[in-house]
């Protein structure tokens, strides 16, 4: 199953990923991204991949 990856150092708390996929991403009190799940189904992939691509600093990726 596709695995979610996040570069917490790079994350700037812009929150775009959460608008796109609030079931996969959130941010903590310091404004850093939190992964809500490690793996996603193939059916969810397009939506979550578009959410990852909406990150302005490329902090998110999805690996097979």
């Amino acid at each position: 199953m596709p695995r979610l990856m996040a570069d917490v150092e790079a994350c700037q708390g812009y929150g775009n990923c959460i608008t796109g996929a609030s079931d996969a991403y959130d941010i903590d009190d310091d404004g850093k991204v939190v992964l809500l799940t490690e793996e996603i189904s193939d059916a969810d992939r397009p939506r979550v991949e578009e959410a990852a691509r909406s990150c302005p600093v490329n902090a998110l990726s999805i690996e097979d």
Partner: peptide, 14 residues
């Protein structure tokens, strides 16, 4: 300097 607050507001406006 407050992403958490912005996120809350972003959802709330929506």
């Amino acid at each position: 300097n407050w992403p958490k607050a912005l996120l809350l507001c972003r959802r709330a406006v929506g």
